[in-house]
């Protein structure tokens, strides 16, 4: 039986094994490859997407679990917070290999939607689930603070 959800603002329907992790449905059936596979066990954050605005790990969330919900991926990231975050990421040239960055950006957007002026401790707690093996952490922190400043105008 097909599972329906709102994906990046549009109705979507997937006729797949309901136990399939959302990550693989997004990537293979949905063609949305910006969301990455890093661990399959909610340990690295590369697969972070928003479920009704809340960051989740799509690698351990079954597609059945998101029936009827609103899912946003990096491809659908939009609005002033997303724009500020992506602009700061660009200005500070945060990325290196880039593989974790979709997840980092989705986690950062969720943080700033909830906490527009985060402290370093807020950044630590919101972002420590997202591994970056290239070690871009210093710039991720700086970019989040910069995005927070630009959001204030």
């Amino acid at each position: 039986m097909a599972i329906t959800l709102t994906l990046n603002g549009r109705d979507a329907s997937f006729d797949v094994d309901p136990e399939t992790p959302l990550l693989w449905v997004l990537r293979e059936a949905g063609g949305l490859t910006g969301t990455k596979f890093g661990c399959g066990a909610a340990q690295c954050g590369a697969c972070t997407v928003h479920l009704d605005g809340v960051p989740i790990r799509s690698c351990i969330t079954t597609v059945a679990d998101v029936e009827g919900a609103k899912v946003t991926t990096i491809e659908g990231a939009s609005g002033p917070v997303a724009a500020s975050v992506q602009a700061a990421w660009r200005r500070l040239d945060v990325v290196q290999c880039g593989y974790c960055q979709s997840g980092q950006i989705m986690a950062a957007i969720a943080l700033l939607e909830e906490t527009p002026s985060p402290t370093d401790a807020d950044v630590d707690s919101a972002m420590r689930g997202n591994i970056c093996r290239c070690g871009t952490y210093q710039r991720i922190r700086a970019a989040i603070h910069e995005a927070a400043r630009t959001m204030k105008g």
């Binding site: 990537r27 949305l32 490859t33 910006g34 969301t35 990455k36 596979f37 991926t73 990096i74 491809e75 990231a77 992506q86 990421w89 660009r90 040239d93 945060v94 990325v95 880039g98 593989y99 960055q101 979709s102 950006i105």
Partner: peptide, 19 residues
């Protein structure tokens, strides 16, 4: 000089082997 690979790695369009 900004990294040429930055834009695609920020919006999810950069393609790796997995993609």
């Amino acid at each position: 000089i900004r990294r040429l690979d930055s834009p695609s790695k920020i919006n999810g369009t950069a393609t790796y082997g997995i993609d």
